[in-house]
């Protein structure tokens, strides 16, 4: 049972990296590839239908942390206090950037929120590298450890590449190249590697700190039956917004 929930937890975190990774990547690439307002509009429109279905994986990760590893929840989040606060602020700015950028007219308004999307995406990507390194070292090292900072840069670059691959898959003219769905899956797997590595490394520790059997049984009976519905909903998103003629609609809500 502990192993089943470890797998669920690992899938959620890896899923977050592989899916939200390309949204953050597109956010990072906004000032690089989207030189004009309409260019950025199209980049945002390319990822827009996926964002709500992708970012929610991290909400689920945090919920699973509370449910499956309650004794670790505080340790992990408190051990990373400044990083978690900074990442939450980044996430908030990225999200409101998306929701607000088209809610009023004017180039300055949209430019400001596009900047917030990029800043937020950068804060989250970089923060993940720092957080993963701190978790891997048992929160013993300084958060400004050079290796941690370097991992922040690596994760940021991985997400940017994944974002570029996503654009090349969904709307090749935006990326200046065409990539297949398989290439997107590969870049997603690569983007998830740092998270999977840290999780596998801490497998024994996590198994030792799993919630008692009674709680896991309740979670299994209540949550697992819904897993097929959750997966089906995600598949529905990917089927509905797959590339093709008219894949990107302007105006898009985001």
């Amino acid at each position: 049972m502990e192993l089943i929930w470890f797998t669920c937890f690992a899938l959620l975190l890896a899923g977050y990296f592989a899916l939200e990774g390309f949204d953050l990547g597109v956010g990072l690439l906004l000032p690089v590839l989207g030189r004009s307002v309409s260019g950025r509009d199209r980049m945002v429109a390319a990822m827009a239908p996926f964002v709500l279905a992708n970012e929610v994986w991290l909400v689920a990760v945090a919920g699973a942390l509370f449910g499956v590893y309650p004794s670790l929840e505080g340790e992990v989040l408190f051990g990373l206090y400044p990083v978690v606060v900074a990442m939450l602020l980044s996430w908030i700015l990225r999200d409101t950037g998306l929701w607000f950028r088209r809610r009023a007219e004017g180039a300055a308004w949209r430019g400001f929120w596009d900047l917030m999307i990029t800043v937020g995406s950068l804060g989250l990507s970089f923060g993940w590298g720092v957080a993963l390194y701190a978790a891997a070292t048992g929160f013993g090292s300084s958060l400004l450890n050079p290796v941690g900072l370097m991992l922040g840069v690596v994760v940021t670059l991985l997400f940017a590449f994944h974002g570029w691959t996503f654009l090349a898959w969904r709307s090749p003219d935006l990326a200046g190249a065409t990539r297949s769905g398989r290439a997107l899956a590969v870049s997603g797997a690569v983007a998830a590697l740092p998270a999977v590595g840290v999780l596998l490394g801490s497998l024994p520790y996590l198994l030792d700190h799993t919630a008692p059997a009674a709680t896991l049984n309740v979670l299994s009976v209540m949550a697992l039956p819904f897993a097929p519905i959750v997966v089906a909903a995600q598949v529905w998103v990917w089927r509905t917004f797959r590339p093709g003629k008219n894949a990107i609609r302007i105006p898009s809500f985001f």
Binding site: A60, G63, A64, G67, P70, T215, V218, L219, V230, A233
Partner: peptide, 19 residues
């Protein structure tokens, strides 16, 4: 105890709502 309803909210309810 407290984690069970919270996990249900995030893993099932809000996950589906957002999607």
């Amino acid at each position: 105890v407290f984690g069970a309803p919270l996990a249900m909210e995030t893993l099932v309810a809000f996950f589906l709502e957002s999607t």
